[in-house]
């Protein structure tokens, strides 16, 4: 399974929203994501993709849209 599909799966599970139709929407401004969901995302990335992201790597402005998250994960994988 490729990174994009996995990340979208994780986001869908986490937020209960299908985000694949709005890849550049800000997930925090719309209230879909918050700090809690961010941590859950980091933990899922670790367990499902083996990508280790320390909390201080999580600069919110670099992780606030589905596209940015995918790009970030691809750069860290």
């Amino acid at each position: 399974m490729d990174i994009k599909a996995t990340v979208l799966d994780i986001l869908n599970d986490l937020t209960g929203n299908d985000v694949s139709g709005a890849m550049d929407d800000n997930l925090f401004d719309s209230g879909i994501m918050d700090s809690m969901a961010s941590v859950q995302l980091l933990l899922s990335l670790q367990s499902e993709l083996g990508v280790n992201v320390p909390v201080s790597e999580f600069e919110r402005s670099e992780w606030d849209t589905p596209n940015k998250i995918i790009a970030k994960v691809e750069s860290l994988a």
Partner: peptide, 12 residues
């Protein structure tokens, strides 16, 4: 960033 998220991370 340094208390809430880290504690949540640890608890989870």
């Amino acid at each position: 960033d340094f208390i809430y998220m880290r504690l949540v991370f640890w608890f989870m």
